[in-house]
Structure formats: C-alpha cells, structure tokens
Design a protein around this nucleic acid. Sequence first.
DNA 1: GCTATTTCGTCATGCCGATTTACAAATTAG
DNA 2: CTAATTTGTAAATCGGCATGACGAAATAGC
Lengths: 402, 402
Amino acid sequence: MTAPLHEARPAGPGRALPDTQQGMRRRNLARVLHAVRAEGPLSRAAVASRIGLTRAAVSTLVDELIRSGLLEELGPERPGRVGRPGSALALSGRGPAGIGAEVGVDHLAVCAVDLRGATRSRAIRQGANRGRSPEPVLAELTELIHRVVTEAEGEGLWPAGLAVAVPGLVARDARTVVRAPNLDWHDTDLGGLLPADLPLTVDNEANFGALAELWLGEGTPRDFLHVSAEIGIGAAVVVDGGLLRGTRGFAGELGHVPVQPDGPECACGGRGCLEQYAGEEAVLRAAGLEPDEDRVGLLAGRAAEGDEDVRRALRDAGTALGVALTGAVNLLDPESVVLGGELSGLAPWLLPSLREELARRTAGPACPVSVSRLGPQGPLLGAAHSVVRAVLDDPATVAERA
Amino acid sequence: MTAPLHEARPAGPGRALPDTQQGMRRRNLARVLHAVRAEGPLSRAAVASRIGLTRAAVSTLVDELIRSGLLEELGPERPGRVGRPGSALALSGRGPAGIGAEVGVDHLAVCAVDLRGATRSRAIRQGANRGRSPEPVLAELTELIHRVVTEAEGEGLWPAGLAVAVPGLVARDARTVVRAPNLDWHDTDLGGLLPADLPLTVDNEANFGALAELWLGEGTPRDFLHVSAEIGIGAAVVVDGGLLRGTRGFAGELGHVPVQPDGPECACGGRGCLEQYAGEEAVLRAAGLEPDEDRVGLLAGRAAEGDEDVRRALRDAGTALGVALTGAVNLLDPESVVLGGELSGLAPWLLPSLREELARRTAGPACPVSVSRLGPQGPLLGAAHSVVRAVLDDPATVAERA
DNA sequence: GCTATTTCGTCATGCCGATTTACAAATTAG
DNA sequence: CTAATTTGTAAATCGGCATGACGAAATAGC
C-alpha cells in the first residue's frame, strides 16, 4: 500500500499479483468487489455469472469478504422472477474509508469516502498558502485530517490510506513534490510531515482530477485527455482506464506545448508555449486586468457581465488551447477531451473557439470536447477514491486489519 | 489468434487470460518461455528461481513445452560451480515460425523468424506498387509468402501466423486498410486476398517498426516515441512495453501536429502541420528538387555530397521536427525518442537542429534522441516478431498443432 | 391449495496445479 | 574417498475452483 496506487498500467483489479493460487484468489476477491461496485446490489448467483466463476466459488469468496467487513448482506431481494430470491450483497458502508486531501493555493480540504463511493465526512479551511513553507501548511492539513478521520470513525469507518493532491509535479515515488510553483515548494518529501499511521500517496491534482472524471463522470470513456488549469496548464492522459505518467512522472505538461514557435519567451526556456496564451496570467494580462486573489472567479464574473475585453481574451485562449489540443489529439487519438478543474468554470467562453479550432484542423469528425461535472471538486474526490480503488483492487491487503 | 496481437495494453505474457487454474497454467507456460528467451539457455532450476515457482512446478511446465516442440533440451551444462550441473533449455529452432510481410511503396518483402528470433528465410521483390490495385499486389505477396513458408518448412519450422506491415492507417480489426495514400488504397480488407490458412494481422508499418525497436533494439526503454517517415510522418507511442493505439487506432499522427498555426494549408484541413515542413515532398521542394523514385536516397546522396540547399532543407526539417517533438515529449515524458524507418538514413543532417530545438525548448535535461539501428528493416522484422511474441505470450494456443 | 418448476445458496466430492518433502544423480571441495 | 552442494524428479499434500446434488424459497399451472 505504500507503493503508488495507480501506475501507468493499473487496469484491471490487482494486475501485479503473482501467478500463484493465492494470487488468483486475491484477484478473484477483487473481481467480486468490482462486480458489486459496478452493478449495485447483486446476489451471489448474479456475481458468479458476471465474473465467470461458479456459484460455489463465489460463495466462499463472499464469505471471506463479509468476514473482512468489505461486503454486507442486505437480506433477501424482492422477488420479481420465478425461483428462490437471492440475497443482495452490497459494499460495506462501515468498512475501510479512503481519506483524500488537497493542498490548494488558497485552501486546504480533506474528505473521507467509503467503499460505496459516498463522501462521509469533509473539512475545508480557506486561506492563502502561496509562499508558506510546507511545515505549517501540512500541520494545518494534519489537523483537518485528524478531524475527518475522527468523524469517519464515529460512523464505523476506519481509514485505509491517505492520498494528497498538490498543485505541482510529484516524483514517481508518490511522496516527493518536485516543484509546485504556486506554493513555491521544491523537492519536498511530504512523508514526514503527515500522519505516519496511514499509507500515503501524493500526486498531482490534475492526475487525481482525471481519475475522478474516469471513476465518477457519467459516460466517461477509458481513453481520454483531461485538461485542467491552475496557474499552469496541465493535462492528464488516461489510456485504457489508467493514467499515463511518463518515465519521470512528468507526462501531461500541456502548458509547454509550443503553439507559436517564435512567440514570446517562456520560463521553461522555450518560446510560444501554450501557457503564454491560455495561462491564467496571460489571460488576465490580455484582458487588461490585474492579478487578484480569486482570478478564475474574477474572469468568470466579468465574462458573464459581458466584458468584451475579457471575452476576447478567453476566446483567444480557447483558440490557443485548440491548437495545442490538435497536436495532442493527433498523437493520442483519445475518445474525448474533458475540461476539468478551475477551467470548467470558464468553459462557456473558452469552448466555442476551442471547438472551432479543433474542428478546423481535423480531417473527419473532430474529437468531442466536454466539461467536467465535478469541476474544482475533482482532485479531492479523485484522491479519496484512489484509496478506495486500491482497496477494491486488492482486498487482501486490508482484510487482516478489519 | 485472429484478434490483434498487440493491444494498447499487452504488457506481460498473456495478460488477458481468465483467472482460473487453466489460465494460471497458461500464464506460467508463457513465463517459462519468456525467461528462457530473455536470459539465454537456462536450466530448470534457474528458470524456477527467475519466475518464482518451484523446481517441481517448472519441471512439469518444461515437459509440456518440450512435448509441444517449443523448448529444446541442449544437454548438460558445463559445470563451473559445485553441485550437479543443470540441463540447458533453449527455445526450439524447429518449432513455430512467425511470417512477416511488408507492402512498401516500391517493394514487397517477406521473412520467417523462429522462436529464437533468428531470421530463417526471406524474399524480396522490387517494383513500384503506387497506384496498383490491391489484388495483383497481394497476389505477388502471396507468392513470396508461399516461397518463404516452403523454405522455412524445409528447415523443420511451421508457420504460426502472418503479420503484414502496410504504409497506412489500419482499423482496429487488424485486417482493414483504412487509407494508404502512398498506395492509393482505401478501406480494403486484406483478409480475403492473403493465404487463408494462416492467422492474419495487419498493422501500420510505423507500429511494427516501433515494436521491432522495442524488441530488438539495444537498450531500448519500455517507454519511448518512435518516429518514422514515408511520405507522411508517423510516430508510434510505446508505453510500458505496449503500443498506444488510440480509440480508433489512429494514434501517432505526428505529421499533423501544428508547428506554425498560421502556416500553409494542409490536406488535413489544418494549417502549418509538421508534414508541411518535414514531410518528404516539402523537403524536396525546399531543396529545389523534383520528386523522384528513391527520394530518401536522393536526399541522402545530395546531402553527403555537400549540397547546401539540401542540407539547409534538412536542417529546417529537423527544426520543425524538434518543435513537434517538444510538444509530444511534454505530453508523454518518454524515456527517449528514436528515429526509425527511412528517416534513419537522413538522421545525420536532421539530428543537430532537431536536438538543438528540443533542448532549447526544454527546462532541464532534454529527452535523448537516438537513431534506430534497424533502419528500414524495422517494420518487416517487427511484423515477423509480433507473431513470435504472440506464441511466446500464450504457448497454449499453438501447442495443440505441434 | 397443491404440485411442478425455477432459481438460490451450500455441501460433499473431485480435479487441477503448485508446494512440500524426500531422494537419487552429478558435480566440486577438502 | 567422503562431505557438501546443486539438479531433476517422484510422492504426498494443500489450496482453490468445478461439478453435481440437495434443501430452501419463490412463481406457474392445475
């Protein structure tokens, strides 16, 4: 559980387990849980037919999962058909919980999600974190975590792990923040600064946002591109239901894709990177506004009021995004592109020009672009759910504790 | 075996097998073969320690593989250490063979590769295929295939499958050529036009080239970007040892990544696509040359002679490639970029400006760019080896035949 | 209402595959 | 020449799923 929860190729339940009989057992435990998760309350017989095992085998698997506190027996199903009614099984609402946390530029947030995917407890603290050193910020976060964990425990849950979303690049060890420009953190190992009694995973907030979209979005495909923006512009590439992380964990740096090879210089060393046309600062400047606390809110407000300068700036940003996404779509052939995170609030003014640019540059039908329903909540939910998924993917690891 | 051999997520041996005891057995057979393939002749005990099974279990697996004709017993190892020497096992040189075929713009080629990876037979026919209809071309190809198969059979091999590399987009059914502009083929199902007694897989020659690089290149990582060019410019994205194909199978269209958003119009509908700066036709035009039969040879020849116009054209093409690759590298964070196919012949004149552009636009160390050793042979070898890999990945499917 | 039918969950049994344990064979170390 | 080490195989055991049979709980038909 200390290992990264979702590698580039997680795919099915517990794919990394050894090919031995115990490994098979563990994979089948996971398959039972996933079947119940995906298709609501299910009888043993129904599970058996979905996952291709016999009723007898499923019976023993279910027994073990009930003993571990991961499954619950809801009692006999209401019979509509002929035959003895089955006994409905559901994921437990009193078992392990995933603790998700988010370090935002101007807020901290924590939540607890149970196996069923329901959020059972949450805590938020507003307050600017830009430039503060990691220690006090994470001390505050730890306090919120304790509060949420205590509340969850009051409801019969126990914390199975902690996942933290940060606005920056995270090394593949899933503990070290390589750089988070908005916080001004560099090469910070969060391991020692957070509760040590919980298995910890740290990841980029764009990645967690994409996972939330994958797991919670309606009709989200298994191959898509998730674009989000804070100050930088990040994308997460989801391939066959798993995140593509890249060798160093730096995949998805859409913000530094060149859109005008001889455009203005960028801090990355290049010229004409997307960030200089569609990044928050660039858009504010183009709209003739000063940087402000709640920049996205400001832009959305002005655009809604009909401010032509702001609308033009957002249209131009959408066009630049369209150019960069054309490249990405050509390279990856995703099923769709989803705008998430803070970007989703500005979508009404970005989307038309973005779609137009993408369609213009595509032969045949253009890749559909949609807006995340989750919006700014994505990263926090994705973090909490990643812990839950890890449990569902290998229930054996937590079974002993319960 | 009719299914595509290498899905986006093939990864380890036979990952798609069911989680039942038979599936486990099949996966373990594959693991034995892969261990022997990767580490030369190995004793049963050595295999056991590599793959984490007991000697007894490996013994029964090896027995089965020897009976199937996939493994051979080489006899006792020369003892250097204390203890009874093991009996060396090697992949059979007289078992199944992978038949690879290539439809090029001006040649046809076929080869047979045995389990050990050795090419055991080959046939080539020069001759322009541009504009010829599929039937006569594939009739010729079929004749070459029969010749190669016959020769391979003479050496005790039997054909396990046929993989065909074509210069164009192939649908995910791995049989239909959606469009091959250089041949002027559109929506052609190759299924009926090739020997029906062999399981068939058709794929883009860039994809097969990338797989060849992955399997045969020295020190090739499991995450890289393979760039190749015929008339168009294609890239294959390899993630964790598997090809990323995209939803429709169209991933890797590097040629239509925008590098100058308001550059000249492209046939794809966009403007300033890479193909207009680094495509073969564009480079020839920029160098003031006429299209010719062997275009790459022509360019390489002139550049070697010191023709300044040609060298400048290639330098500029390298720069454009550098811009497009900057975007791709930022998005995917691959471990390296490999120039393959016909491009490798022009590499000496493309690389300097390409590397310079990539480094200039990258903060920190730039992604290393190398040149394929396989060059134009990649696609054919990749095709043949893909059949061999399919056998190694699930030996049970062919065991019955042998 | 009564019986036949259908489906569910479980048990006893059997099979398959890997592990464990034991042992003979083949080599080196002393 | 003996002890130690390693290999390969055979016999017994164990874990895990499949098979087949059975009681339980519902519907369908009379």
